[in-house]
């Protein structure tokens, strides 16, 4: 599903990634673990095609980074759900509109949008807050909205960049359990975090990264 083969990334004179190799299979829950500045977010940005590798091969499902056209990227992103540490929600809209937005963008019909939004909000346990404005929600709830939005288009993989970074221990545990539940339904998840111990006994494939290199 996600293949990185000898991926390098450089900005000006700074070598951010050096020969990164790993793959994440369908339905797998993988986690990139490493300290701040190790290159975790860069890897996710590369996979989400926000940036492009300096060299190396990166394939996500059928999309090869070297072959994809810029006009195809929005369509690719609809199939790769993404959540961020700072949630990146539209704060002037309510929960429903935030999730519906990802569907509007794909031209889904209004009735189907409503049905799908209710479905994903139920999945993340936020049905009762569907008309709440974003600033009215706790951090954990905001992250659930972000996850619901990422799931709206039924992606084949969910990328999560430090999804628990801004949350307290209890909310973090809830989010991890939610991600695990989503993964059990068959969706691949690739999560970046600097805390390896947060997974406990969860069956997660760990990919360790230090100074832009994959380490054992």
């Amino acid at each position: 599903m996600i293949y990185l083969t000898d991926v390098w990334y450089r900005v000006a004179k700074n070598q951010i990634l050096s020969g990164v190799n790993f793959h994440v299979g369908s339905g797998e829950f993988a986690c990139i673990v490493g300290p701040s500045g190790a290159g975790k977010s860069t890897v996710l940005k590369l996979i989400h095609m926000q940036i492009f590798p300096t060299r190396g091969k990166l394939v996500v499902a059928d999309y090869d980074v070297k072959e994809i056209r810029l006009s195809e990227i929005p369509y690719f992103r609809r199939k790769v759900g993404v959540v961020f540490q700072d949630f990146k929600l539209l704060e002037d809209r309510d929960v429903f509109e935030n999730v519906a937005f990802a569907l509007w963008a794909t031209g889904v019909r209004r009735k189907l949008i409503k049905r799908r939004v209710f479905q994903v909000l139920a999945e993340v346990g936020l049905s009762h807050k569907r008309y709440a404005m974003i600033p009215e929600l706790s951090g954990g709830e905001q992250q659930r909205v972000a996850i619901a939005r990422a799931l709206a288009n039924e992606p084949f993989v969910l990328l999560a960049d430090e999804p628990t970074g801004n949350l307290d221990a209890e909310a973090s545990e809830d989010i991890l359990k939610l991600l695990q539940r989503i993964n059990r339904k068959g969706m691949a998840i690739l999560m970046a975090t600097h805390k390896e111990d947060i997974f406990g006994q969860m069956p997660v494939k760990v990919i360790r990264i230090r100074e832009g290199k994959i380490v054992p």
Binding site: H48, Q50, S71, P74, Y75, F76, R77, R78, V82, K88, L89, L90, D92, F101, A102, A105, T106, R149, A150, N153
Partner: peptide, 16 residues
């Protein structure tokens, strides 16, 4: 600007 960035991240086309 923030909204525009979010739109692009969730897969909105430039025209959209």
């Amino acid at each position: 600007q923030k909204n525009i960035q979010i739109m692009q991240l969730v897969g909105a086309t430039i025209n959209f």
